[in-house]
Design a protein around this nucleic acid. Structure first.
Lengths: 348, 348
DNA sequence: TTGTACGCGTTATCAG
DNA sequence: CTGATAACGCGTACAA
């Protein structure tokens, strides 16, 4: 690694002079300035960020903790965090907890195990002296990643912190559920089945709430028999489809695209076709939605906006040294959008 | 951050004593040992890795440079790197170049721009004092990421370094192309079309070479008219299908699953069906392959193995201080595997 | 323009 | 057995 000292030696000047030049301190002769800049260019010198931070107390480095980068939502959020940070001259670095690969969905069960993975990761970022941290979980839930006396600013994406100290940027699941249900109602559907995840899951509860509210606004009775709980996976979709079709629904609202994949599986097996025989919609707008036949009408998550907003929030915290007062927006909800494709039929 | 000094103060001992206890140096009374360990547990103290590295010259930290974590192959490779590192008690940290998001496929064109992104990322990892680096590109090509006098060990995945200093772990594209072609031949196909990427692309060239060799081994003449160059995307698949079907192929070998998606688009539009009217196979075994109707027979990349092997190589370099001599295996090729699904029909 | 103390948390060394 | 202190690395700030 090329250091300041080396540059100084090559130019026969002191480290101070080189440092001054780099920091734009004017009291340097033009001659030495040119010479030093030349050598810096030749050697490709770049400052050691850690050493800089040692004195300046600011590293201009933001740490990202991802629960699992293999989940479809994570890279998109991270990409947008990074993109925004770059425009504000912050660099980023990332640690990956690999929770999903490690424990396959069970990670939020055992607190102790969770912290045994989280804490070293946090320590790693603190060692590096990041100025702030953004946390990117795999799915929405109530989070307690950092305790109250955590020293540096942190922002939560996707999850709920319920803490004014750590703002969170979440998706508006309820409105997503509402909008899609409203769309199906608009298309003439009245018996709309639902297949989702487990009962205590935040996504599940909020989307279902939106579904109920949309029905209610049209004065349609909510029928719990048309709601299937499951595991967010393809099998749940298959089983849910079987149940719901027996109960004569005209449309199935899957709370994930993967579930919709299972519904398609069932339809294919029974020789049925969407949207002719039954309408199917999803949630997430994963890449696969576009490859389904027929392509899947679904609800797109505002992942780009989440990343951008979280970065924006953190950097504001960092640059403006906002007091606790300004943190009214300690929770920001971002809207989903319905993406129309070809899996819904208009009735009548 | 809890520091050694704090622990020492709380226990009324010196930092040296605490440090000795943590490092298992035996000349400490059992009493103080217990007390200190107790306090360490209570406070959740964890050593500052950077400070440790300052003296020990080893941080037990491995840096990963990803060209773009949004590409399907990257998270899988990284996941497996990390998983292996963890078993060997190495921690990992990652920087993301975002090349794809930045320049959309054009990143390998302009050297200067490329290095303007790569160099700060490398510097970031060097600042942090990682013990070694693994590079994860978005696609295979010849790489010169690090110059000869780069100080720390580095391993390349996916790309070709052609340098004994930096071993690379790559996929055996040629054998992948061979095996799939051989499978199609085995199924009775003789006129097999190909749709791939651009001409100078390593994946394209090697897969095509495998295709040719498989034909040759069966004494079938290679017909360049049955090979369509393109952009690896859905549109290329659509256009390629149009061309190849006019030329009466019975099977189309798409060099990516995405291309196969375009072929399916074309078939649907023309009222044709795979595999009845024509057989279609892909390459990559992305998640979408399983959601295609009919599900897509394709070639799976050894991404897990790449990640694991790269980590293994790097850690061996790190732990054993191998001399240049032992680095015979400066390039390791890992085999792909054919995944049979439902998009191929047996002829006759 | 230069010399040099200082910032950080840990470990190594040596004295008590 | 325990503790004081130097050293590690590199860049910045301030006095000279």
């Amino acid at each position: 690694m090329v250091t300041l000292k080396e540059i100084a030696k090559r130019c026969d000047v002191s480290v101070s002079t080189v440092s001054n030049i780099l920091n734009g301190i004017p009291k340097v002769s033009e001659d030495t300035r040119q010479k030093v800049l030349q050598v810096i260019k030749e050697t490709g010198y770049q400052p050691n960020y850690i050493a800089q931070g040692l004195r300046k107390k600011k590293t201009k480095l933001i740490g990202i903790i991802a629960e699992d980068i293999s989940l479809f939502s994570t890279p998109i959020i991270i990409e947008n965090i990074m993109s925004y940070c770059e425009t504000k001259n912050y660099r980023t670095i990332m640690v990956n907890l690999r929770l999903y690969a490690r424990w396959n969905e069970q990670w939020y069960q055992d607190e102790e195990e969770y912290y045994s993975v989280l804490n070293p990761a946090v320590q790693e970022l603190l060692s590096i002296k990041v100025d702030g941290i953004i946390y990117v979980p795999g799915h929405a839930r109530n989070m307690r990643c950092f305790d109250e006396n955590f020293k540096i600013p942190a922002v939560m994406t996707y999850g709920y912190t319920h803490s004014p100290d750590f703002p969170s940027v979440v998706i508006d699941d309820e409105k997503g559920g509402y909008d899609m249900t409203e769309y199906l109602l608009e298309m003439g559907h009245r018996r709309i089945g639902v297949i989702g995840g487990r009962k205590d899951n935040i996504h599940m509860d909020k989307r279902l709430l939106g579904y109920q509210r949309a029905l209610f606004d049209r004065r349609i009775f909510y029928n719990p028999d048309l709601v299937c709980y499951g595991n967010w996976n393809r099998e749940s979709g298959y089983e849910g489809a079987e149940t719901l079709i027996k109960r004569n629904v005209t449309a199935i609202f899957c709370f994930s695209d993967i579930i919709a994949g299972g519904v398609y599986d069932y339809l294919e097996e029974k020789g049925l076709e969407a949207p002719e025989d039954i309408s199917v919609v999803g949630f997430d707008d994963q890449v696969i939605a576009e490859y389904f036949r027929p392509s899947l009408t679904t609800v797109a998550l505002p992942l780009e906006e989440i990343g951008k907003k979280a970065a924006e929030l953190l950097i504001r915290l960092l640059d403006e040294e906002v007091g606790q007062t300004e943190q009214q927006m300690s929770q920001i909800e971002l809207p989903c959008s319905v993406v129309l494709r070809k899996s819904v039929k208009r009735l009548l």
